[in-house]
Simulated scan of single mutants.
Amino acid sequence: MRGTRCWALLAVAAAAAAAARELDPAACGARFAVQRDKIIRTEESRGMGARYLAELDVGARAECLRLCCETDACDVFVYEEKSPGSCYLFACGPPEDFRCKFTAHGNFSSGVLALARDRAEQQDSARLTLHERQLASLSFESHFY
């Protein structure tokens, strides 16, 4: 019975971890550094290796940020501050090899993922693994008390 219960708890923890591996939008959004009155220098950035991913019309900067979080490889967004505004998504690379340049420009905001997406996902995974171990230890402790 003890072994079955322990495996059941581990299965639940593993399923929760798998679901949470998708970058949580709230956690993702908190990882962005957003600056008003900044726009990407598109041609220079693309010349350095940045990739343009998409343009969408959205109602608010928060929606643009959310779309970047939900888009694979997106680590930079540029939002035109009007309603609706254009939301531009880019892949600029990790902080140690960042391929985007910016300049001052009114009516635009830019958001840059402060951590590389893969590093953020690794940190999330490590945190979830810790939670799994803590959960499993509860089951182990209950057998000895």
Rank of each mutant, 00 (worst) to 15 (best):
Y52G: 01
H143M: 11
A30K: 10
A19W: 06
E22K: 06
L130V: 10
E22Q: 14
R66T: 09
Q134K: 06
P94D: 11
E63V: 01
S110K: 01
A16Q: 14
C87N: 04
E70V: 01
A8V: 09
C28R: 01
C68R: 02
E44Q: 11
Y79P: 01
V58C: 02
H143V: 14
E63Q: 10
S86Y: 02
A15G: 14
Q122T: 13
V78Y: 00
E55W: 00
V76Q: 00
L138T: 10
E44Y: 01
S139A: 12
G49D: 06
F32M: 01
G85T: 01
R46G: 08
Y88L: 04
A136V: 12
R61G: 05
A54W: 02
K38A: 11
K38V: 07
V112L: 09
L9H: 09
S45G: 03
L135Y: 06
G106P: 08
L65V: 02
G85W: 00
F102Q: 00
C87A: 07
S137R: 03
C68L: 06
R41Q: 13
A62D: 15
R21Y: 11
E22L: 09
A17E: 12
A136D: 05
Y52H: 10
L89I: 04
H143F: 09
R117W: 05
P84A: 09
F32W: 04
L10R: 10
L9R: 13
G47Q: 04
A104S: 12
L128P: 04
R51A: 11
S86I: 01
E22F: 06
F32R: 00
E80K: 03
R5E: 14
F98E: 08
Y88T: 01
Y79W: 06
R36S: 11
S142I: 10
A62E: 15
R46H: 10
T103W: 11
C6E: 11
E96Y: 07
S86G: 14
A104D: 12
H131I: 13
M1T: 13
H105K: 15
C92E: 03
F140Q: 13
A15N: 07
C69I: 05
L23M: 09
C68I: 04
I40L: 13
A50S: 05
Y52Q: 03
L10G: 13
A8N: 10
F102C: 02
A104I: 05
R117D: 09
Q35C: 07
R117Y: 07
V12G: 07
D72L: 12
L23A: 08
C28N: 05
A14V: 09
A27K: 09
V12M: 08
A15Y: 03
R46K: 13
A20N: 06
T4R: 15
V78E: 10
I40G: 00
V76D: 00
C74T: 03
D72V: 08
V58K: 11
A126C: 06
C92R: 03
H131G: 13
R99S: 07
C28M: 05
Q122W: 10
T129K: 14
D124C: 08
T103F: 14
D37M: 07
Q134T: 11
R36Y: 09
C100F: 03
C92P: 01
R127N: 14
Y79F: 15
C74K: 00
C100L: 05
K82M: 12
C69K: 02
K101F: 13
E132M: 14
S110V: 15
R66M: 05
A20C: 07
Q123R: 06
A17W: 04
R127H: 11
L115R: 06
E141R: 14
T42R: 09
E96V: 03
L10M: 12
F90R: 00
A136N: 02
L135Q: 06
